[in-house]
Design a protein around this nucleic acid. Structure first.
Length: 559
RNA sequence: GCGCCCAUAGCUCAAUUGGAUAGAGCGUUGGACUACGAAUCCAAAGGUCGCAGGUUCGAAUCCUGCUGGGCGCACCA
């Protein structure tokens, strides 16, 4: 499939070369040739804007140039039916009839692999996502980040990148200590209800009580007699691991997996934060303030101001370990780093990028993807998510309510940098309004057709059994064309890091399938036609299934 | 005050990264089940792409200014 696009591109390039040699086009270098598949089939199977791009340099009209290009074109394989110059100067290629048939054969041959490519050429990328603090359960915003990250990894993987998925655990700072304190007070309250619960520096959520009860069940009154600091330290670890297990099981529920959970604590234990600071000191990038605080001069690399690494009281800031973590990632030698953050952290991008430079890499080695907020709606009204009160709907609850397929699809229905309203009522309707079912139904419908055919004794066709001349309806041509664009959609999603393109493609494909189905019978009395049409919808089924797989959404055979 | 993101049909959002007549879903109106699944389809109405300039063969997309909204600007985490 791509070989053909490549040969067309080469034919165009050759044409330019020939025109340069005989002096009709006076160019020093060969321009990049761009070939697109137009949205309207009346505009050809492929189109190039080449002539318009050249117009400026040559100071000649695009129409004129287009004509020259076409005149110099040779077509040894006889692929092209005709070329037209259209509109402001597009060169439109109309290929020999049987071209789109190749798409169907390609899908048959590749099966599950249709849509995969070698775009990334094996280059490696570390994707860090979710990285939620282990001080509370995941909420719906984490869910969005998890799904976007997961699907992005799947897309990159399918596009020939070597992907490593990582979850960074902030288990070394004040907040886990606060978690420990919170558990400590709740724990004591179990034994003595008069113990007051502080109003600051603690987590008020219900889940803290659960942790305290677990401590009491396992260790009885063991911690009551321990010195407060020691107890809190132990309970921090305990609480942290409980929360982390919860997070893991939520992710499991969503079928989101990681290659590695990287703990902040390990950075300190292995002296990596300290080593990192030494390196920065050697590079002469640190300043010491009067009160003893240590500051990194990120402002030399485009940041607004310098950033503190060690506070006046001797504590490390989170920024210090963040640097060490990214240094660790870079030292593993990936070609790229992708971080997926909540959009409220966008202010951290400049300082993080400056770090990448400080460590000797191009700032673009790190790409930060921002995930905008999710508004949970019920009965058309936003569900209040008070962090302070600890009152919120957890991701786990949403998953139990709407199911994984729906949750995933909904998270991917918008570009990740725009706000998302998650309508619980819409997500639960098993009807026409729900886009997930629309797509899944298309798949189930095709499966049903095959069952029907089987019952009537019609075999599942292979391309050798098919007379492709029988697939000549506009709807059929249109379907073939659209199936042919799928690999480019996946590549585009990989290059732009935009997973939402896949569900949009799926909805369009499903729409075309439904329209075709409604207008024309797949199974009739004409056996040859049966085989041809079954072969076509079989290809549609393969592509729907592949795309749904990419999203981690199931492709049901019955609904 | 400074910085980042957003503004497209009544609502929610797309637009092949600068391409041809800006497209879907929902909602509205009107139609289609004695044949493979109506969880479906067909048709109509609906637009000053926030406003004003600029860049060029060509702008929703790029540059500048303005308006309106979101979010950031810690020796917080």
């Amino acid at each position: 499939m791509f070989d053909l696009k490549d040969t067309l591109t080469e034919m165009l390039a050759d044409s330019i070369d020939r025109a340069r040699e005989d002096g009709t086009l006076q160019l020093n270098k060969r321009p990049p040739v761009q070939l697109d598949i137009p949205k309207d089939s009346l505009l050809g199977d492929f189109a190039s804007n080449l002539a318009m791009v050249l117009a400026r340099d040559l100071k000649r009209s695009p129409l004129d140039i287009a004509k020259v290009v076409i005149d110099h074109l040779t077509d040894p394989e006889g692929l092209i039916d005709r070329c037209e110059v259209a509109g402001p100067g597009f060169i439109n290629f109309f290929l020999k009839e049987d071209y789109w048939v190749r798409v169907l054969k390609d899908i048959e041959a590749k099966g599950d692999a249709y849509g995969k490519s070698a775009l990334g050429k094996g280059s490696s990328v570390i994707v860090e996502f979710v990285s939620a603090n282990p001080t509370g359960p995941l909420h719906i915003g984490h869910g969005r980040g998890a799904v976007v990250g997961d699907v992005l990894c799947r897309i990159l993987d399918a596009s020939g990148y070597q992907v490593s998925r990582e979850f960074y655990v902030n288990d070394a700072g004040k907040q886990v200590k606060d978690l420990g304190r919170s558990v400590w007070f709740r724990y004591r309250q179990i034994f003595d209800s008069t113990v007051p619960f502080p109003s600051e520096g603690v987590y008020p959520g219900e889940y803290v009580l659960d942790i305290a009860r677990q401590v009491q069940e396992r260790y009885r009154d063991f911690y009551l007699s321990m010195a407060e600091d020691d107890a809190i330290s132990k309970l921090s670890d305990f609480g942290c691991s409980v929360m982390l297990n919860g997070i893991r099981s939520d992710l499991e529920k969503m079928d989101v997996r990681f290659d590695r959970f990287f703990t902040e604590k390990s950075l300190y234990e292995q002296g990596k934060v300290q080593a990192c600071i030494s390196e920065l000191k050697e590079k002469n990038l640190l300043l010491e303030e009067e009160n003893g605080a240590l500051v990194l001069r990120t402002s030399l690399f485009g940041d607004d101001k310098d950033r503190v690494l060690i506070k006046g009281n001797g504590d490390y800031t989170y920024f210090a370990s963040d640097i060490a973590y990214h240094r660790d990632k870079l030292e593993r030698g990936p070609d790229r780093l992708i971080d997926i953050w909540g959009a409220d952290h966008h202010g951290y991008i400049p300082r993080m990028k400056s770090i990448i430079q400080v460590l000797g890499h191009d700032a673009d080695t790190l790409k930060v993807l921002l995930i905008q907020m999710v508004n949970l709606l019920r009965d058309g009204k936003p569900v209040r998510m008070g962090k302070r009160t600890g009152e919120f709907v957890t991701l786990s609850e949403v998953l139990d309510e709407v199911g994984n397929d729906v949750a995933r699809f909904f998270f991917l229905l918008r570009r990740s940098d725009s706000h998302l309203d998650f309508d619980l009522d819409l997500a639960k309707t098993e009807s026409n309004e729900n886009p997930v079912y629309y797509v899944q139904y298309a798949h189930a419908r095709i499966c049903s057709i095959f069952r029907q055919a089987w019952d009537k004794g019609i075999p599942v066709p292979a391309s050798n059994d098919v007379n492709f001349d029988l697939l000549s309806l506009p709807e059929e041509k249109d379907l073939m064309r659209f199936l042919g664009t799928y690999p480019e959609v996946v590549e585009g999603a990989a290059m732009a890091l935009e997973p939402h393109r896949i569900p949009f493609y799926l909805q369009e494909l499903a729409a075309r399938l439904h329209a075709y189905y409604f207008k024309h019978r797949i199974i009739s009395e004409e056996q040859d036609k049966n085989l041809a049409r079954l072969f076509l919808v079989g290809a549609v089924r393969t592509v729907i299934r592949n795309a749904l797989n990419l999203l981690g959404v199931s492709a049901p055979e019955k609904m």
